[in-house]
Design a protein around this nucleic acid. Structure first.
Lengths: 169, 169
DNA sequence: CCCGGATTGAGCATTGTGCTCAACTTCGCG
DNA sequence: CGCGAAGTTGAGCACAATGCTCAATCCGGG
């Protein structure tokens, strides 16, 4: 029994309502969902505690900060120096997110930049990190599907007469 | 005039404080930053209006929803059918984010999945989309640098040339 | 020099919050 | 079968925050 991770349908409902109206107050959510104010408060508090809710920064658009360019740098790395490389990447402010990948490229680095020249500079800093063997930079020209979790939330919502995982309450 | 994008240093300060304490009230922020409550309220309202603040869903951890696996699917696409492909991708719930890239791969698709088999199924659905010519799936094995904007916020904070915060609560 | 925009302090009615409590339902498990 | 743990609910209460408006400053640019 993994009581740990998974949010149940009610949690999904709350998050869904919050997605539609981020500034909604707890009472408003409770009223909209037909739940008690106390319940919504308790569940929200639990989610905040259990790190189901991430950092606030996720909600900030880099473009508004003066970094309208997004690029993905894939890199091959000397695996023995992975920790070292990871630390160096974390030291670059324009590096927004780094994943260790399976497959032919080891690293996926998401970076933002103020302009093309800035991006060139950042890419250079990454390539200069000891342990990084080869990089390839791809500019994100368009955000075809903006970041979203709503479809998954809707699916987890009890509203669907669906029982995706039988046996789990 | 440049009413568009860029947030100024004070905005960055507010966002920074909010990053440290997402649930902080407006009055608490104003007090911490030594600004008037009215000012903080006005600036926050403006940011919400100007889409500098993204959707709430960005703050939800997919893992908590029952999708612990993240993968990146790169794809080559028939450019004439890009819109069609984009729409089809948007129809897949597990597709969390899609970028159009420059370079040798046209698309970067970020997907989540419940388990390996689920991921296989999702990858199959993507490959089946008419207009998609070739895909390559890389599993995100580790999040080496979790999504963060704090370093950029700190840099944007009031001009940028400031002594390091001596004692921040 | 004057104007528009941003900032500030003040005030006020309304609303939400954090918290506690006791009753009640729903499960899991012995 | 029934006990107990956990979740939900409604109620209530003191306090704080919100949304809003107003008038008085600042501040930079034309």
């Amino acid at each position: 029994m993994n009581t740990q991770q998974t949010l149940d349908g009610t949690d999904a409902q709350i998050l869904l309502a919050l997605s539609a109206e981020p500034r909604a107050t707890v009472v408003a959510l409770a009223e909209r969902l037909g739940l008690s104010r106390n319940t919504v408060q308790a569940r929200l508090a639990k989610m905040e505690r259990s790190s189901a809710l991430g950092a606030f920064e996720r909600r900030i658009t880099p473009g508004a900060l003066g970094y309208p360019l997004t690029a993905f740098v894939t890199a091959r790395v000397d695996q023995h120096r992975l920790a070292e490389v990871s630390g160096a990447l974390a030291g670059i402010a324009e590096v927004v997110e780094v994943f260790g990948l399976s497959g032919d490229t080891d690293l996926l680095v998401r970076v933002v930049a103020a302009d093309a020249e800035d991006l060139y500079r950042v890419a250079g800093r990454i390539l200069d990190i000891p342990g990084i063997e080869r990089t390839s930079t791809a500019l994100a020209m368009r955000e075809l599907v903006p970041h979203r979790l709503t479809p998954l939330l809707r699916r987890a919502d009890t509203g669907g007469h669906r029982r995706p995982h039988p046996g789990n309450p």
